[in-house]
């Protein structure tokens, strides 16, 4: 673990872990509420939001893009609900209609606008570029105590850490009502818990996590982390608090193992170039899920 590791790998590794955990946390509740595919839908619809934000501001800047993505997510949720109610279409179909159409609109906008001068394309949106988030100002482990070097950290890291903090705090604050509403919505309603507001709040939290993670690591990690670690954790235990702990552990493990395998795996196999870290993190989370599905103590009930 030398100085090279600090410069090249520390920041992407931490960003990957923060993104994975920030998505896995709300993912637990979405999974239990049978809304697991919301993460999938959100990660598709943010594309038009980001492109519109770029067209409006004319540059690649994090905050307008996150705002645009969040707006797009909100628009998508509203459209899905509208179609579901007005057209009496089932939820899965309404979701499928909206997210594919919005994604198609995003691709069209991207093709129509002049983005050749900036780094904005569909591939980047899908699998991000975790590997490029290196910490150029670092010289070694001692840089962690050097304020000047710390100022040169990739801005994605503090942003992702902040997002993780916000998501954790929100879940901690609303823990009891969220738990009640997730397992027994009718009972929660009789206790006077605003179930609808809570449900929307959960979707918004998920959207915030997805949009922040999307900016740093691309949408494929977002979808995988919303579902795989919570699904694996669900098969480890019957207690919600334990499930959350397991999912955090699985998400962290996927991020670390995936990043290391992507960066060093090909070298061990005699190759010369690293493979996509985002793809590898998703793959590892899938392997964990597959393993738990075969031997997990609570895989059936």
């Amino acid at each position: 673990m030398g100085d090279e590791f600090v410069i090249l790998s520390l920041a992407p590794l931490l960003i990957g872990i923060c993104a994975a955990v920030a998505c896995a946390l709300p993912g637990n509740f979405l999974l239990l509420r049978r809304q697991a595919l919301i993460g999938d839908a959100i990660s598709h619809v943010v594309l038009p939001g980001i492109v519109v934000a770029f067209l409006v501001t004319g540059r690649i800047a994090a905050w307008p893009m996150m705002l645009g993505a969040a707006c797009a997510a909100l628009v998508a949720v509203l459209l899905i609900e509208t179609i579901r109610r007005l057209g009496r279409v089932d939820a899965g179909t309404a979701m499928g209609v909206i997210f594919t159409s919005m994604f198609a609109a995003g691709v069209l906008l991207l093709e129509q606008s002049d983005t050749s001068s900036v780094h904005l394309d569909v591939e980047h949106a899908l699998y991000g570029n975790l590997e490029s988030l290196i910490w150029l100002d670092a010289t070694g482990w001692s840089s962690l105590l050097d304020p000047r070097a710390l100022a040169g950290l990739p801005p994605e890291l503090p942003r992702m850490a902040l997002t993780l903090l916000a998501v954790s705090v929100a879940i901690r604050i609303f823990w009891r009502p969220l738990k009640l509403a997730t397992f027994d919505e009718g009972f929660a309603r009789t206790l006077g818990i605003p179930v609808q507001v809570l449900s929307l709040g959960l979707v918004v939290t998920a959207a915030i996590a997805a949009v922040a993670a999307f900016d740093a690591v691309g949408s494929i990690i977002v979808i995988a982390m919303f579902i795989c670690p919570p699904a694996a954790a669900r098969m480890m235990t019957n207690r919600l608090s334990a499930q959350i702990c397991w999912s955090v552990a699985f998400a962290t493990l996927s991020a670390i193992l995936g990043y290391v395998l992507a960066g060093y795996g090909p070298l061990w196999l005699g190759g010369t170039d690293a493979v996509s870290a985002a793809g590898m993190i998703a793959t590892v989370s899938g392997l964990i899920l597959a393993g738990v599905a075969v031997i997990g103590p609570h895989r059936t009930a």
Binding site: Y127, F226, A282, T283
Partner: peptide
Amino acid sequence: IGAVLSVFFGFGIV
């Protein structure tokens, strides 16, 4: 669905 979608796609990207 979500698990298979994301994992296969991720592996495909690799």
